[in-house]
Simulated scan of single mutants.
Amino acid sequence: MSRGQGNITTNELAHAKTLIDHINTIFDSKVVGQTELRVSLISTLLAGGHILLESVPGLAKTTAAETLAQAVNGSFHRIQCTPDLMPNDIVGTQIYNYGTGSFTTQLGPVHANVVLLDEINRSSAKTQSAMLEAMQERQTTIGGTEYRLPDPFMVLATQNPIEEEGTYVLPEAQMDRFLMKQILTYPSSTDEVEILGRVATGAQDAPITASRVSIKDVKYLQCLVDRVYVDDSIKQYIVDLINTTRGLGSVEVPGLTEQVRVGASPRGSIALMRVAQALAVQSGRAFVVPDDIKLVRHRVLRHRIVRTFDALANNVAPEEIIDAVFNAVPAP
């Protein structure tokens, strides 16, 4: 069945809903609130991509990553980035055995189904490049031998926006490789009271008892996402939106050229379509609707639009620019 053109049965959608409900239940048992984060993580996993998380410390990024891995019975590794972290610390290395006179290969922590790259902007450019290469090629090379990464493979990279000392900002070209960029906000007062209650009763650290899904189930969901129907009118809508961010669309957005230096790349078009397909499956649909595209516009495009100096000086948020583009381009 060709990608994006297959017919999905009602039974397949029902089975997908059951699997996704299991993941949601486990996630909600460990992470209070953060519904948008949950949807973003599951969408990224189903679309076969990677996600960049940005927030101040203490907003459950590590807990969310570990819980997602547990929910799908996948392996999980956390890599704490520091300025002295070397590429071999991530991908692996060869160790010489003096007793046998031979080398043995030790795979690095990137070899896991879910990898948390904590504070990626604290690692050097060389280390960032090694990790991003593994994300793109889904393999590592150690001593001239290629080692495939597990399938599925998903990276959650985090960065702290308030600390600048000792950090290396991710270049736009490297940020573009992340399917989505999710910005986390503080929990509501009600949610924070719930957090304190769970910590006080020990529920936060209690073992997971809900039904989990398997890696095989995740692959099933990914194949289902591949088969979600995307009409030509939706594809044209996506292209019109992306072209408008470049200043090349048929609709003119006042002041856009003064605010945007570089618009979204073709990866932005692909990401909008893939995430929309993942959302459709989570919504129990076998096809994409324009509202799917609109719902994820900020998460998919905020890190793909390079603002001009004037826009930065005037604190024009990328979300404002994205909203202006979506308001200008008519939906099918």
Rank of each mutant, 00 (worst) to 15 (best):
G6V: 14
N7G: 12
T10S: 14
T10R: 14
E12L: 10
T18G: 14
S29E: 09
S29Q: 09
L45E: 01
A47E: 03
H50Y: 07
I51M: 10
I51A: 06
S55N: 12
L59M: 05
T63Q: 05
A64H: 03
E66I: 11
T67L: 07
A69H: 08
H77W: 04
H77I: 12
C81V: 08
C81N: 06
T82Q: 06
P83C: 01
P87S: 11
I90V: 13
G92R: 02
G101F: 14
T105R: 10
T105C: 11
H111Y: 01
H111N: 07
L117Y: 02
D118I: 13
I120S: 01
S123A: 15
A125P: 08
S129I: 05
S129G: 10
A130S: 04
A130R: 02
E133P: 00
A134R: 04
Q136C: 02
E137V: 04
R138V: 06
T141L: 01
I142M: 02
G143E: 07
E146H: 15
R148C: 09
R148Y: 13
P152W: 02
I162A: 15
G166Q: 11
T167S: 11
L170V: 11
M175I: 15
Q182R: 13
P187H: 00
P187W: 00
D191H: 10
V193W: 10
G197Y: 14
R198Y: 08
V199F: 13
A203N: 08
A203H: 07
I208L: 06
A210N: 09
S211E: 13
V213A: 13
L221M: 03
L221F: 03
Q222R: 12
C223K: 12
R227Q: 14
Y229I: 09
Q236E: 13
L241G: 04
T245W: 04
R246W: 05
G247P: 07
G247K: 03
G249I: 03
G249P: 11
V251D: 09
E252T: 15
V253I: 09
T257Y: 10
Q259E: 12
R261Y: 15
V262M: 12
A264I: 01
R267A: 06
S269F: 10
I270K: 15
L272R: 02
Q277K: 15
Q277I: 00
L279K: 14
Q282A: 01
P290T: 11
D292S: 08
D292E: 11
K294R: 15
L295A: 11
L295Q: 13
V296S: 09
R297K: 14
L301D: 09
R302F: 07
F309L: 12
D310A: 15
N314H: 10
N315I: 05
N315F: 07
P318F: 03
E319M: 10
E320T: 13
A324G: 03
